[in-house]
């Protein structure tokens, strides 16, 4: 148990220490540590990549909007799939999982061309909608499972009371599956936050997300020292780590079980 923990967390601990300026000295025998704790490297990040802090904001906005749209559209469709089953709805639901597994490279090249032709290249809207489309299938699959396992009595009671679709969804279903919805939104936020390929091919400099900024660190003519890179990494990890921490209980509800529609 301890070994596993160590194996997974040590690299991150290493990085965190490096970002604070504490570095291992592998040339001494046995290897030792050197350097004093300082926050200089975090400031360096802003110098090495001046737009880094702005990229942070852009990432938050694009990921939040994309996750919201994907979860919204996905939830509605999931409800429809669960409550109006047809012959092949099981396969269709599985189809969404297959779509969720499809790597972006399969279609980003024509996507960038299409966006250019409709003059949406390098716009906030294009990035958000593309990220949403890439992650919505996963939302559909997960939320379908959540809705499908609800006992139908609640909704039937509401219908008997004269409720229309909106009220059933809003007053009955949503509160019951809220944890799953939140969990899905958090997972999708993380996926959007970390996406590189989609923003990479859809933008020419106006819209920049954190992964794009990080990939800049490693292109032509860049020398970046380890502490500054580590600081950048920690900063890019912090928001999603905090998010996961806040919602950790709810995250249990993110389930990939396939339920047959009841």
């Amino acid at each position: 148990m301890a070994v596993t923990l160590l194996a997974f967390l040590l690299p991150l601990l290493w990085t965190a220490l490096a970002s604070l300026g504490v570095l291992p000295d592998n040339s001494s025998r046995p290897p030792s540590w050197r350097g004093s704790v300082s926050l200089d490297h975090f400031a360096e990040v802003g110098i090495a990549e001046p737009a880094f802090w702005q990229e942070l904001v852009t990432s938050v906005l694009t990921a939040a909007c994309a996750a919201a749209i994907a979860v919204g559209a996905g939830f509605l469709a999931a409800f429809g799939l669960a409550r109006a089953p047809f012959r092949s709805s099981r396969v269709v639901t599985q189809g969404f999982l297959v779509l969720a597994s499809l790597p972006a490279m399969a279609y980003v090249i024509p996507l960038s061309d299409l966006m250019r032709r409709v003059h949406l290249l390098d716009t906030f809207a294009a990035v958000v909608l593309s990220e949403a489309a890439a992650t919505a299938p996963l939302a559909v699959f997960v939320l379908h499972g959540a809705v499908a396992q609800l006992a139908p009595e609640w909704e039937e009671a509401a219908v008997l009371d004269g409720a229309g679709l909106f009220r059933v969804i809003g007053r009955v279903v949503l509160p019951l599956v809220a944890p799953s919805v939140v969990a899905t939104a958090v997972v999708l936020f993380v996926l959007d936050w970390n996406m590189l390929l989609v923003p990479l091919v859809l933008t020419s400099g106006e819209i920049k997300t954190i992964p794009l900024g990080l990939s800049d660190f490693f292109t032509f003519e860049r020398e970046l020292d380890w502490p500054t890179a580590a600081a950048a990494l920690i900063v890019s990890l912090a928001p999603v780590a905090v998010l996961a921490g806040i919602f950790h209980r709810v995250l249990n509800r993110f389930a990939l079980d396939l339920r047959t529609g009841e």
Binding site: A51, R116, L200, S204, G205, E206, L212, S215, D216, T219, F220, E221
Partner: peptide
């Protein structure tokens, strides 16, 4: 001053010129 990743600069310029954007 607009900046793009180095690996993209060639393509962005070419696309911008060729499509008269």
């Amino acid at each position: 001053i607009i900046t793009v990743p180095f690996s993209d600069l060639y393509q962005k310029l070419l696309t911008d010129f060729a499509t008269k954007t």
